[in-house]
Amino acid sequence: MSELLVEATGLHTYYGSSHVLRGVDLRIGCGESIGLMGRNGMGKTTLLRTIIGLVRSREGRVRIRGRDATREAAHRIARMGVAYVPEGRGIFPNLSVHENLIMAARPGSEGRRDWTLERVLETFPRLAERMRHGGGQLSGGEQQMLTIGRALMTNPELLILDEATEGLAPKIAREIWTIVRKVRESGIATVIVDKNFAAVNSITDRNLILVKGEVVYEGPAAELRERPDVHQRYLGV
């Protein structure tokens, strides 16, 4: 595996008294694409939120490029190159599309400036037509593109996509997958959570399955395709 970007070890995270993550390890190499699978309520979003510093783990460590980021503030972790596209999108409805895109624009943690406004608009031509619109006026698919575009404007090393195609029409979802593929090919590492396991599997290098806060399966994408037993046992499909 290439150089390690994120290394989470032994994460235990609680919400109040409920023990959500029970000793999760997750390693993400530079440029690597990882599928994070599991049924609802198994701790996928909690794992992502723990890594990006929005939730604190009670035990365990998170390292980003070897630097300890376990107790770092969320904005510092973002500045280390981790971009998050949350479930439910998280656009700013009171800002225009243009403002949503430029408000957080910055060179990456290594000084990279690959993703400019021009390149984001090339990637998402639909957004270019809607620059003056308020974020809240966009359709669900356009909002999703805006969130991904906005995340790319921060020139991240890692893009985390939590349920990026949730609630979208199949045609729009396919458009999103095409874009995610492009992002992946540009060398940005990705963590993808999605209910469409086949689509995830066709993009990722490696997949993890979470059940009740524990990693029960980890393996290369090619392997999961030939393991209907794993699908059936842990994913219910």
């Binding site: 990006i52 904005h75 998280g90 700013f92």
Partner: peptide
């Protein structure tokens, strides 16, 4: 200004602003 955009964004979604690398504090 970008500061103004961050301020307006912060009024609707504090967490998202942080996750974009902005020091909300």
């Amino acid at each position: 200004t970008r500061l103004g955009m961050m301020i307006r964004a912060g009024s609707v979604n504090r967490e998202m602003v942080q996750s974009l690398g902005i020091n909300i504090g």
